Simulated assay, not measured.
Amino acid sequence: MEKDGEYLSWCDIEDHDVRGNQLHCPRVREGNFKKAHPHELNLSFQDLGDLYQVENFKRILKRLIRVEKLWLVDNSLTDLSAIRLPRCRELNVNKNHFTSFKHLPKIPQIQHLSLAENNIMTLSGISDFRHTPLESLILKRNPCEFQERYRQLVFSSLPNLKMLDGIPKLPEDYSPPKIRFIFKMCTIL
């Protein structure tokens, strides 16, 4: 493992306010995390099987107030709503167990959010991201993807969104205004 080069271990995570001696979760793995930028962190594939491991992991996440890009792929996470990531612009929580947008962390600066392969059933709560700079959202392989008018509903809830599931906003993604016709019947005798 290289300290000065391209990779770093848990013990050497600097610029994130987390030190190796603060990790009390026995199954939090040491590993090679590519150090691309001091505000990018990959904590994926942690095999968090027990409640105490998840709670300790959340305690670590609460300290990541400077992180701008965070990957938490395949960690069996279900609820991070108590976490606030004030500077996070890119969050990847693919392959977890989120069931709702309400269970995501507070991410007011989010631009790119990837939630593929979770268990998000409905688009309820998606409008909470309306006042963020969210440009790109990935919801592939979630049950909500099969909702009628899925793309139109997402784009109407998030007018600033430019890309959904890797596909740019298309003309058919614009919701047409709802026009109601009222028909009155009269009987001619």
Results as ranks from 00 to 15, higher is better:
Arg59Ile: 00
Thr99Gln: 14
Tyr52Phe: 14
Pro105Ile: 08
Ile120Gly: 01
Ile65Glu: 12
Cys11Ile: 12
Ile110Thr: 03
Arg63Phe: 00
Pro26Leu: 10
Leu77Val: 05
Asn75Met: 05
Leu23Thr: 09
Asn42Trp: 12
Val18Cys: 13
Asp128Glu: 14
Lys95Val: 10
Ile60Gly: 00
Asn42Ile: 14
Lys34Tyr: 11
Pro38Cys: 09
Trp71Leu: 05
His131Glu: 15
Arg29Lys: 15
Asn32Ser: 11
Asn96Leu: 14
Arg84Glu: 14
His131Ile: 08
Gly31Leu: 03
Asp47Met: 08
Ser44Lys: 07
Leu64Glu: 02
His103Ile: 08
Asn32Tyr: 11
Pro105Cys: 00
Glu135Leu: 01
Thr122Pro: 00
Gly31Cys: 02
Glu14Val: 08
Gly49Cys: 06
Ser127Asp: 09
Asn32Asp: 13
Val54His: 03
Ser76Ile: 03
Ser76Thr: 07
Ser81Gly: 10
His103Lys: 15
Leu91Cys: 14
Ile110Arg: 06
Tyr7Ser: 08
Ser44Val: 13
Asn56Ser: 11
Asn92Gly: 04
Phe101Ile: 12
Leu113Gly: 10
His103Thr: 09
Lys69Arg: 13
Arg130Thr: 14
Leu64Met: 03
Asn96Phe: 10
Thr78Cys: 10
His16Trp: 14
Leu48His: 04
Ile13Ala: 08
Leu61Asp: 05
Leu85Ala: 00
Arg87Cys: 13
Ile110Cys: 02
His24Asp: 07
Arg19Tyr: 06
Thr132Tyr: 03
Leu113Cys: 12
Asn118Leu: 08
Asn21His: 11
Val93Asp: 02
Lys69Trp: 10
Leu113Ser: 09
Asp79Ser: 02
Leu80Trp: 07
Asp47Phe: 03
Leu80Ile: 01
Ser81Thr: 03
Arg19Ile: 12
Pro108His: 09
Val73Pro: 02
Glu30Met: 04
Gln109Cys: 15
Ser124Arg: 07
Leu41Cys: 05
Val54Tyr: 02
Ile126Gln: 03
His97Glu: 15
Cys88Val: 03
Asn42Thr: 07
Thr122Ile: 09
His112Ala: 09
Asp12Glu: 13
Cys88Leu: 08
Glu68Cys: 15
Leu8Pro: 01
Lys58Ile: 10
Arg19Trp: 00
Ile83Met: 00
Arg87Ile: 00
Lys35Leu: 06
Leu23Asp: 05
His24Val: 04
Phe57Pro: 14
Gly125Leu: 04
Pro38Ile: 01
Phe101Leu: 13
Leu8Arg: 10
Asp79Tyr: 01
Asn56Ala: 14
Arg66Glu: 12
Arg66Gly: 04
Gly49Tyr: 08
Val18Trp: 07
Leu123His: 09
Gly31Gln: 05
Ser76Glu: 08
Pro133Lys: 09
Val54Asp: 05
Arg27Glu: 15
Leu113Trp: 02
Val18Pro: 04
Lys106Ile: 10
Gly5Ser: 06
Cys88Asn: 05
Phe101Thr: 06
Gly20Thr: 08
Lys102Ser: 10
Gln111Trp: 00
Pro86Val: 04
Gly20Tyr: 06
Pro86Asn: 09
Leu70Ser: 03
Glu6Cys: 14
Val67Asp: 00
Leu137Glu: 00
Ala82Cys: 06
Asn42Lys: 11
Leu123Tyr: 13
His131Tyr: 11
Ile60His: 00
Asn32Pro: 01
Asp128Trp: 13
His131Thr: 15
Asp15Ser: 02
Phe98Val: 15
Arg89His: 12
Asp47Asn: 11
Glu30Thr: 09
Lys35Ser: 05
Asp50Thr: 06
